[in-house]
Design a protein around this nucleic acid. Structure first.
Lengths: 336, 336
DNA sequence: TATTGTAATGAAAACGTTTTTATGTTAATT
DNA sequence: AATTAACATAAAAACGTTTTCATTACAATA
């Protein structure tokens, strides 16, 4: 019972290979009796078509590739899960490649192992490579990187707007000295958030202050250290609110403040970004902006499949954030 | 520049297809000059071999499949990440299938889309199916399900021992009325943990009490409700320590206790299982048992690849847990 | 010089499908 | 009765590789 092929089924059923193929693929040119007979035999022999043969023949793999530098962390598992489910629903398989090696991507794409790809921003495919991919008509959707052309689209978060709204919220609480804890300057999202923050300050005629833009690198520890070195400011210069580039940063910030005798949110409000699982359990529970990660996953797969099947053009989609108010922010109290 | 095949390279280089193939695959029967010429042309044309052709020909896909019901939660992302990296290192791709449909698995395995599979316990492949897979010489590694035969191995956690040690630790703190919050009775891990707990009680001649085994279903909310209905016990019957089947259960338990005026760990110690990310941020930070998830991922891939390449037999590997002491447990204080 | 050996390359088969085209029956039309 | 239509099935080509086997050219040997 090594491996049973379509040939075996044909022989056993006493028909030709093409008849078996037609029976299995529901091409209705067959006598119903023949068809059901073939199907019965196929089941009897436990026949399962060899995908490589199938795919070689019709050039499609029914596989999508997801290329990313990591799948660690709450962002990714929500993303992977939603993409995976959507693939399932649409009859595709999802191939997850965790790699920093762009070569891997290219050989997989060009080797036709996948029909299309989702690429996470951090891989930083450069313009030249993108042009080459377009020329080869490779279908791709980029996450967290704005892009749109013949064969490629993107699904990104409206980080500018989200940061703008978050800052506006802090201002509405009465805060005036609002600091921003920045992420990684090479990442689109990070930059957008900073811009949104600055725009809100300008809008409400609050001064923007270089000292109030702190490098936190999206990490708890870096932020902790950065805030620690800030804490020596004289009280009147100390920010009364922090907008962190992500939740981990917010956590690091709060811990640094706590360890220096500040109470959050009593003395200082702190906001995060992302609404990771930890956010609601942290003490105080984090006020944050939630991104629709699952939606990003679903939309990206959907868009990719539409490009593949319906030859649609690439589009750029922006998803709005959602303000989640919890316990790490409160109305500004003047303690004089 | 549609798709360039080996034929195009051959034509362009003025040699035969087989020569191109030999050049590309480093079969050294060729005149070095021919070889380098062919290689140059191939690069020039941007040739990338079509994997389907390749794989159809030699029957291997260099792909492993991971089949699971979910990738959500901290357990899975650690697992997927470690597996993915290990695959990368060994020159395999990892195909993640999130599905409850066993049919999907079978057709992918039997359709030779993957060379071997990692299967997460929850899919509950039954004995009969396993026998069929063995007969077809399908290489598989099961996670969290003990198994070992010709072509299949498993990597599991030593949950019995872990629970035994955890319980022993609670006993060492002076607790005598220790309750266990059980998970899902159909899962191997869950059962093992309960058995370990019971074994420790017996070992130290503490009574085992049916009332002290609570159904928490590995969920925060279920546990919360279960504990709520327990809380009416008279003080002398109330447990002085809880061992929860996982961290989420521990969190639900603590929240239920808190909301009824108990202080953790002052009045009651609570332990979890798994050491999820939230554990260290929760208040109080959770004492728990950490499983070596990444190690499980790496070992499983390794074992699978060895079975595929070296025709090794299946093995069963057990990974020990690690006690992480934090703030949700303390020495028993008698308040009389 | 005629034979054999060696090195390099090419031709063709095979992997397992799907699909196009051909073939053979039987029924319907003239 | 002779042609055509319709239907059912079979044969063969194609997808892009790798690999086995055959061919060629030339050098080495007898």
């Amino acid at each position: 019972m090594e491996k049973v092929t379509i040939k075996d089924v044909a022989r056993e059923a006493g028909v030709s290979i093409s008849t078996v193929s037609n029976a299995l693929n529901d091409v209705d040119v067959l006598n119903p009796e023949t068809k059901s007979h073939v199907l019965k035999i196929a089941k009897q022999l436990n026949y399962v078509p060899n995908l490589n043969g199938k795919l070689l023949r019709n050039g499609k793999t029914k596989m999508l590739g997801f290329f990313t530098t990591s799948v660690a962390g709450p962002y990714f598992y929500k993303l992977v899960e939603s993409m995976s489910r959507e693939c399932d629903r649409l009859g595709y398989g999802l191939n997850v490649f965790v790699t920093k090696d762009k070569q891997v991507i290219m050989s997989n794409i060009l080797g036709r192992r996948v029909d299309g790809v989702i690429i996470y921003e951090e891989l930083r495919i450069d313009e030249e490579e993108i042009a080459a991919m377009v020329k080869d008509k490779i279908k791709a959707v980029f996450l967290d990187r704005p892009l749109k052309n013949e064969t490629m689209g993107s699904v990104i978060f409206n980080s500018f707007e989200s940061a703008y709204e978050a800052t506006k919220y802090l201002i509405s609480l009465g805060h005036k000295k609002i600091a921003y804890i920045s992420g990684v300057d090479e990442m689109y999202d990070s930059v957008q958030r900073k811009e949104g923050y600055l725009a809100a300050l300008r809008q409400y005629q609050l001064p923007t202050n270089e000292e109030y833009i702190i490098q936190g690198y999206f990490e708890e520890e870096s932020t902790y250290n950065a805030i620690k070195s800030l804490v020596h400011l004289s009280p009147e210069k100390m920010p009364d609110a922090f907008l962190a580039g992500n939740d981990l940063s917010a956590i690091g910030c709060i811990q640094a403040l706590k360890s220096n005798g500040y109470e959050v949110p009593l003395d200082i409000s702190v906001m995060g970004f992302d609404d990771i699982d930890i956010a609601q359990y942290f003490s105080p529970p984090l006020t944050t902006v939630r991104n629709q990660i699952a939606r990003q996953g679903i939309l990206s797969i959907n868009h990719l499949v539409r490009m593949i099947q319906k030859k649609e053009q690439g589009e750029m989609m922006k998803l709005p954030g959602e303000l989640i108010v919890r316990g790490s922010t409160q109305v500004k109290i003047d303690r004089y």
